[in-house]
Computed example of a mutant assay.
Amino acid sequence: MGYLASMRTEAKSSVLKRLKRIEGQVRGIARMVEDDRYCIDILTQIAAVRAAMRRVEDEVLRDHVGHCVEHAIRSGDAEEQRAKIAELMEVFARAER
Results as ranks from 00 to 15, higher is better:
K17D: 09
A52V: 02
G2F: 05
K84C: 08
Q45W: 03
K12F: 07
E59K: 08
E96Y: 10
D36L: 02
E80C: 10
E70R: 15
E10G: 00
L88R: 03
F92N: 11
E96H: 12
E70D: 15
M53F: 11
Y3C: 14
R94Q: 09
R27S: 12
G24V: 05
F92S: 13
R31P: 00
A95F: 14
E10C: 01
I29M: 09
L88I: 10
H71L: 08
C68S: 05
A11M: 04
R37E: 12
D35G: 05
E23M: 10
I85D: 05
M53V: 09
D36C: 10
I46F: 06
R50M: 09
I73P: 03
R54D: 15
G28L: 03
L88E: 04
A95S: 15
D36H: 11
F92W: 13
R74N: 14
G76Q: 03
I85Y: 06
E34H: 07
T44S: 13
M89N: 15
S6E: 15
H64L: 07
V60S: 00
G66D: 02
V60E: 00
E79K: 15
I46Y: 04
D41F: 06
E59I: 00
R94Y: 07
E70N: 13
V91W: 06
S14M: 07
S13N: 09
A51Y: 09
A47Q: 11
A86R: 15
A47S: 11
E70K: 15
M1E: 10
